[in-house]
Design a binder for these strands. Structure first.
Lengths: 340, 340
DNA sequence: AGCGACCCTGCAAACGTGTGCATAATGGCG
DNA sequence: CGCCATTATGCACACGTTTGCAGGGTCGCT
């Protein structure tokens, strides 16, 4: 089997022309060929163990059955489930995904994007979109369809699927408000990312909805979704607004940063300060204390993004432009009624 | 730029023959072409924004600059750092990696493997090898080089890079023995996986080295590296050998399963039973209690595997066949001196 | 019987590169 | 001045598919 078996080999075995073999093997064009010849060809192909050469096919059809997936960092526990959802769905449809880690560096992002275009990917799924419209304008002339995942834009200029972040933030606020907290802080994420932005809006709306006043000093933003940034901003929060009894963080990692700062200051969680995270990252229930958080259907988000892209790849422009999946809530032990 | 710019376009712009352009642009063959013509060609290529078509190239050269990476499940926190290490190294060398999740299902494994071969990958890195020699014999005639990662075989029939699992287990045993434990149990992993097998051997050796006797009832094996299996086997362990004061688990997830069982039986960790894991998975220091565990340089393992494969892809058969990276130890709070 | 319609299949030209071979130009040397 | 070695480029084919076009055969209908 060293010299791989080709279309011509099958043709010879089935005593037909290579062109006929191509038609018989391609589901689209099978109708053009006599049924029994088709079967004979298929049998011959199977016996010889024929595998179509994707490069030759791609060369003709300009399709690679490959899609580019851009994530900031696969090491961030948020992304593996999303990627898994994407790959499962894409794989079932005969597509393969190329994954690139951009580390949220716009230059790397551009570079990877171009490298993937050079590799003839048929489309993109990216989790790296910044809210500033740079990305959109940069991808203006790109012919490959693009789907955003876990990010969305203000307008609907690009199809996207993400969790309903505002709703999630509302769940979080209502939970702590329901426990009796009144002085609630928000440890927000980067406002240039839709997740950070939307969750902040959700926080504001929910506070108003609960009839609670927002202390401006108790709303501060991290410049990245990391534990270190969470710790830094948490310190700011405690210094600027010492009276707070609950912190609604925009992300589990930010919440973990809070854990450290509370310990460092001799405050207990949840007895002194309640903390709620966002994402329900894997093993969040194992933390000390188990983290109360907003649960996001990561895998489904990935799968839905893949579906959206597959639609775009199949026909023209069908389906909804944006998809918002409902979050749920995981009440655990990092939240409790306020002290006193 | 819609009709992508091709070799002929560059040729026309540089007033040479397409063949010459090919030679000028390919570093290997640049020596064959006049220096100033080469420069003229390169400049023209840059101005036109020429990107070689990888499919056409691959069709001629039978190389795709693509490697297949097989992991059981990217969702398992063990693998993202490994994958990241692989991709970084491969990407720097101009290769792209295709990732597939096999869920440890031999059928899926075979299927994905073949699908990737059909896609003309240049080589494989797999983290899914079972210890039984099925995999080796199945991949006998495969011309693409294969590198094992986080798994190795008894013999050196396939190049592999992994952590020194025996040494790691030794560190774990010495740690608890040093704390004063004498009745030490081993919650082993699947013996069909080299990690499970080697760690068990390391456990046995280290016990002997420490002059401790092994209670046969206190050595049991999980059938998978999961929390559920960890819990199941932990119950068996406690039932069969109630006197144990420490459990050396072959994996962090197995250790987490122990946490649950201890809580369920009213035992405290580490006061009543010490537990040590293996892998130092992300956020293991956040668990309750923070997990004492053997630290593995995942990312470096991935990078080394990529290097090994790149060597194989570049020339013939150089470099070491197997690479064992040294583990270190993270003493945290799930271990303490034995009660009494 | 003749004619058109239809079905099937062969033919050949692409797709964009790489590369062996031929050939033209140049220089060195006897 | 002629010949050979060397260098530089053109030429054309091949890689394995897909696909428009054409043609051969069969069938039905008038």
């Amino acid at each position: 089997m060293r010299p791989s078996v080709t279309l011509r080999d099958v043709a010879r075995a089935a005593r037909v022309h290579p062109g006929t073999v191509s038609r018989a093997l391609n589901a689209e064009t099978r109708g053009l060929v006599n049924e029994e010849t088709a079967e004979r060809v298929i049998r011959a192909a199977e016996e010889l163990g024929y595998r179509p050469n994707p490069m030759a096919r791609g060369l003709k059809t300009n399709r690679s059955f490959t899609v580019g997936v851009l994530v900031p960092d696969i090491t961030n526990p948020l992304f593996p489930p999303i990627v898994r959802g994407i790959e499962d769905r894409l794989g079932a449809a005969g597509y393969t995904s190329l994954i690139a880690n951009t580390d949220n560096d716009p230059d790397r992002e551009r570079h990877d994007f171009e490298a993937m275009r050079a590799r003839q990917v048929d489309g993109f799924i990216t989790a790296t979109a910044r809210l500033d419209r740079d990305f959109v304008s940069e991808t203006e002339g790109v012919e490959q369809p693009i789907v955003l995942v876990n990010r969305r834009l203000e307008d609907v200029s690009l199809p996207a699927v993400s969790a309903d972040d505002r709703e999630g933030a509302r769940l979080a606020v209502e939970h702590v408000a329901g426990l009796g907290h009144r002085r609630i802080a928000h440890l927000g994420g980067p406002q240039a990312l839709s997740t950070g932005h939307q969750r902040r809006i959700g926080f504001t709306e929910a506070m108003a909805g609960a009839g609670l006043e927002i202390d401006e000093r108790a709303v501060r933003f991290a410049s990245a979704f990391t534990e270190a940034e969470g710790a830094r901003v948490c310190r700011e929060l405690l210094d600027a607004a010492p009276g707070i009894t609950a912190i609604v963080a925009a992300n589990d990692l930010l919440a973990l940063g809070c854990y450290d700062v509370l310990a460092e200051r001799g405050l207990r969680c949840p007895e002194d300060v309640s903390i709620v995270g966002f994402n329900d990252m894997p093993f969040a229930d194992r933390f000390d204390p188990p983290l109360t958080t907003v649960r996001i259907p990561h895998r489904e988000i990935g799968a839905a993004a893949a579906d959206l892209l597959l639609e775009r790849l199949a026909d023209g422009e069908h389906g909804p432009r944006q998809l918002l999946l409902a979050p749920s809530f995981a009440a655990r032990r990092s939240t409790a009624p306020p002290p006193g």
